[in-house]
Computed example of a mutant assay.
Amino acid sequence: MTPEDHLLDIGCGSLRLGHLAVPFLKPGHYWGTDASLALMRHGRETELPDPDRLPLDHLVEDADFTYPGIPDTITLAIAFGVFTHLPAPALPQALTNLRRFPNLRTALVSLFLSDDPKPTRQPDGVVTHPDRPPYHVTETSVETAIRDAGLTPVRKPMLLPRGQVLWTASPPPGL
């Protein structure tokens, strides 16, 4: 990421990434979405050293991953720890709707993985579930969701906090 990028922070909550990204990016280059507008506004007021650097209209309430009002200038998207709290159908919808951003270079998504249809103890000890939070999904379902959205999946080798796995979803070259 460079200061010139336009970042879409999906499920940004109280700006746990935003408090770092907003000062780093050029003014107006950060957009956050979340199911709770109140949570995002609270984060803007309490987490940012200069709240005026993030216009209120850059925080968009969006529980359906339709990205209303988000401009086509988005170059990067991140959904960190979002889909660990949502049932599996949310991921394909969110990825498919990202295709409307013509300048998107890549999206980063973190999830818990397991092929087990029962609760699974992740590497750091957290127990995930196929049917309730924190959710896990299969590697195959992640690859399928990314490919079905017209994006190219890449599983990154590092494990993230709590044992989440990082994936990139990028448009094919030439698009």
Results as ranks from 00 to 15, higher is better:
M1Q: 07
T2K: 12
T2V: 04
P3L: 11
E4T: 13
D5S: 11
H6D: 00
H6V: 15
L8C: 02
I10T: 06
G11S: 08
G11C: 12
R16C: 02
L20V: 03
V22Y: 10
K26N: 07
K26L: 14
P27M: 11
G28I: 04
Y30A: 01
W31A: 00
G32F: 12
T33F: 07
D34H: 04
A35W: 07
A35L: 08
A35D: 01
L37E: 09
L37V: 01
M40Q: 02
M40V: 02
H42R: 11
G43C: 04
R44N: 00
R44K: 07
R44L: 02
L48G: 01
P49E: 15
D50R: 07
P51R: 06
D52F: 00
L56R: 06
H58G: 01
H58P: 00
E61F: 14
D62H: 05
D64I: 00
T66E: 14
P68S: 09
I70L: 08
I70G: 04
D72S: 15
I74Y: 12
A77G: 07
A79M: 04
F80D: 06
G81V: 06
F83V: 03
L86C: 03
P87L: 10
P89I: 06
A90R: 09
L91N: 09
A94D: 06
L95I: 10
N97C: 04
N97L: 09
L98H: 13
N103E: 12
L104I: 08
R105F: 06
A107H: 13
S110Q: 11
L111S: 01
D115E: 15
D116F: 11
P117L: 12
P117Y: 12
P119N: 11
P119S: 11
P123N: 10
D124I: 01
G125H: 14
G125Q: 11
V126R: 14
V127M: 11
V127K: 08
D131N: 15
P134S: 10
P134L: 14
Y135K: 08
Y135E: 08
V137D: 08
T138R: 05
S141P: 05
V142Q: 05
T144L: 13
A145C: 08
A145P: 07
I146T: 03
I146G: 02
R147I: 09
G150I: 09
L151G: 02
R155S: 03
K156Y: 12
L160G: 06
R162L: 10
R162D: 02
Q164E: 14
T168Y: 13
T168P: 03
P173L: 04
